[in-house]
Amino acid sequence: MLEIKNLYKKQNDNLINNINFKVEKGNLVSIESSSELSDVLIKLILDKEILGTGEIYIEDIKHSEYIKKNKKSIGVVFRDEGFYERLTVDEYMKYYSDIINSKVNYKDIMLKFSLLDIANKKIKTLNYSKRKMLAFAREILKEPKLLICQDPIFNMDKEGIRIILENIEELCSKGTAVLSISMSFKDTMLIGGKTYIIDENGLKENEDKKDDERSELNYKEEKDYLHRIQKIPAKLEERILLFDPIEIDYIESEAGISNLNIRGEKFPCMMTLTELENNLECFGFFRCHRSYIVNLQKVREVITWTRNSYSLTLDDKQKSSIPLSKGKLAELKDILKI
């Protein structure tokens, strides 16, 4: 449905660097991206920005040509939406339904998004979650072949998240191609589908979704203790996520809960810190403090503050600083050969 080939675009400090991906009919692709890159990518897809290099196709037609003739086939829910604030929810949905000559009963769509009970409220009185659901409801009136949504569940309440995820799933089941772009890694994982991360280095598929491509023979030739694949479980709402150790920046214990810190976000793990220490030691993790385990591959600096105070600076998204116990310093130096 949507295909992006070798797309390159530099705009101010924002760089879309030679990215390639497809969103097939009936499929969901979820991308983690900064807000700035998200804005640029959506503008490029909608032909509101000139391409640097590369090509964009929608239904095998160049996007600029497709949009001229099939604009109503594309639904877009932006991060920040503009509405006719003085209209009620019902008035707005009816008005939009009439404009696009929708074949769908707009009240049925309102029901799907729990908007009927606030049908007579003016839009200017709605909270963020309700406004986001109204934007989704409006775009679904189009029965879009392609839906692009920007931060679809960001800052939403639990009920709002459930409703939007259910409707995205239903759209895919009916053949709509859905592209979701979120600032939050956690949101990207929760939305699901085929997940990617985009930054100035390009686009890469989320490691948690990839199969281990190493052959059994090559795998056995690695260090003896690396004899099995280890996944670390974490809970996100009603889902259990399984992370590869290399994805974890560090782990911290808070109020008895072990939190996996991954790309600047926390995921509660069902294992204790001691269990995690035992399971992850062979993957290069180090118990640097009674409340912290760190992925040594992510350590950028060892900082001495005073004779008794040390910390580790990580090369992660947040440039995190975590404590290093004085008693662990000698052990760390031995491991790192320093």
Rank of each mutant, 00 (worst) to 15 (best):
N218M: 13
N167V: 09
L44K: 08
L111T: 09
E55G: 06
N6C: 02
I198T: 07
K210S: 14
D244C: 00
K103H: 09
K223I: 14
R162S: 14
S215A: 08
L41G: 04
N295A: 13
I161R: 14
D47F: 06
E139A: 07
S291E: 13
M1N: 08
E205L: 15
G54D: 14
G202A: 10
S180D: 03
E91H: 03
K121F: 14
I262S: 03
E55Y: 12
G264V: 04
M1R: 07
F286E: 09
I123R: 00
N279Y: 11
R138W: 07
N218E: 15
R300G: 01
R300F: 12
T313D: 04
I161A: 08
R263I: 07
I191D: 09
G54F: 08
V77E: 04
K220F: 14
G54T: 11
E277C: 02
S114K: 06
K103S: 13
P245D: 08
Q150W: 07
T306H: 13
F185G: 04
I31R: 00
Y66Q: 00
P152M: 02
E85K: 05
M156W: 09
T304H: 09
H289A: 02
P323I: 11
D108C: 00
T176Y: 05
R290S: 09
G54R: 06
K130A: 09
P233T: 13
T176Q: 04
S320L: 08
L273E: 11
A119V: 01
S311M: 09
D199I: 11
E281H: 07
I232R: 05
H289E: 01
I240Y: 10
T125V: 13
S184P: 13
D108Q: 08
C282M: 14
S114N: 14
E252M: 06
L44S: 07
K223Y: 15
I248N: 00
I303D: 03
N218S: 12
E237Q: 12
K337A: 11
G327Q: 10
